[in-house]
Write a protein that binds this DNA or RNA. Structure first.
Lengths: 186, 186
DNA sequence: CCCCCATGTAAGCAGTTGCTTACATCCGAC
DNA sequence: GTCGGATGTAAGCAACTGCTTACATGGGGG
């Protein structure tokens, strides 16, 4: 009884619950029992379908960011990521960055995934400039996005936390364009 | 035998070990046994002198923040803070920032860092511009500095983590000057 | 119809965690 | 000296963790 026998729905429920809890509490403070309860699923199924808590975390990160990266052409990536980060009610679970920030891992598969994500964002941003140090410039822009997320959601720093999205986005894109502009011929 | 009977030294050893480990691993991934071992102290003493792991964490943060004081002339503040954030090893006073970032819950800890960030840095940075939204601009610059620290020390993101300090500082100051410049009369 | 396996469940295992307890031992006050 | 509290030690407890196992069950293919 109880659950409909539907593996796909069960997996999805687990992934949703994990996404929410990892984003809100971080990896360590989220237990597999919490995830299973929120999903309304027996916790043994979590291991059947995802293998381990680490693997589930990795799956959460990759699926989340794939969507964002694929939906945004490079020239709009900065703005899109920024706006997502600046949403009125910061739905923490919405952005994998929050899960990453609240879970600092120096071992395990999750660390690898985090590295890959950073590379993907940086590569996309680096394509916006033809400067010699494009990669470094991209890292700096990425750092800015991360820092804004940290101050807003983890520290609640005012006035940034309560600032108007458009205003913030305008200031950041203006300043970041100094780093990401193409050199004009002539 | 073993330890000299010196409560003050024991407390100090525990506090030092806790400071180091909380900063490196965060609250959750640091165990009281780790702290006691690093301090060379029986773990029962940790509870005798600090009450609980939570209380020890709070003590670490408050103790450190009292040490955090840096006076730089406002015009050089950005550069000084930047260079400091780009140092190879984070300073002792920088640890509360990372300790909090690596520790997912602890609201009081977040309050502490927020207050420091606001009063120490943001106010000074805000004095660098006369724009209406000086505070917001200062927060954004501060967010950048924090983000750079996160990518370097927590994520080890390359090429940023291994980049030349001066080069990074040059790029950041150039882009940040867009936000912090004074409006020219006429 | 029946069999079989994908799906779901209940229970528990081994390791770790924060914290406590019961007990030695030292040292200063008297 | 000796008494008592401050200091240090060893052991263990109860709860929680990720994960596994042994077992029900239902539905689709033969």
């Amino acid at each position: 009884m109880s659950r409909p026998r539907d593996a796909a729905a069960t997996k999805a429920a687990l992934l949703d619950a994990a996404t929410k809890l990892f984003g809100e509490r971080g990896f360590d403070r989220t237990t597999v029992r919490d995830i299973a309860n929120l999903a309304g699923v027996n916790q043994a199924l979590l291991f059947r379908y995802f293998g381990s808590k680490d693997a589930l975390f990795a799956t959460v990160l990759t699926t989340q960011s794939r969507e964002l990266l694929e939906d945004s052409p490079a020239e709009h990536l900065l703005r899109n990521v920024l706006l997502r980060m600046l949403e009125e009610k910061p739905r923490r679970e919405d952005h994998p960055l929050y899960a990453v920030l609240r879970s600092s891992h120096h071992d395990s598969a999750a660390d690898l995934v985090r590295r890959q994500l950073g590379e993907e964002y940086a590569r996309a941003l680096a394509s916006l400039t033809d400067a010699d140090d494009a990669q470094l410039r991209a890292d700096l822009v990425l750092a800015w996005i991360v820092g804004i997320g940290v101050l807003r959601t983890m520290f609640g720093k005012e006035p940034l936390a309560g600032a108007d999205r458009a205003e913030v986005a305008a200031l950041v894109t203006k300043a970041a364009s100094v780093l990401l502009e193409h050199t004009e011929p002539g």
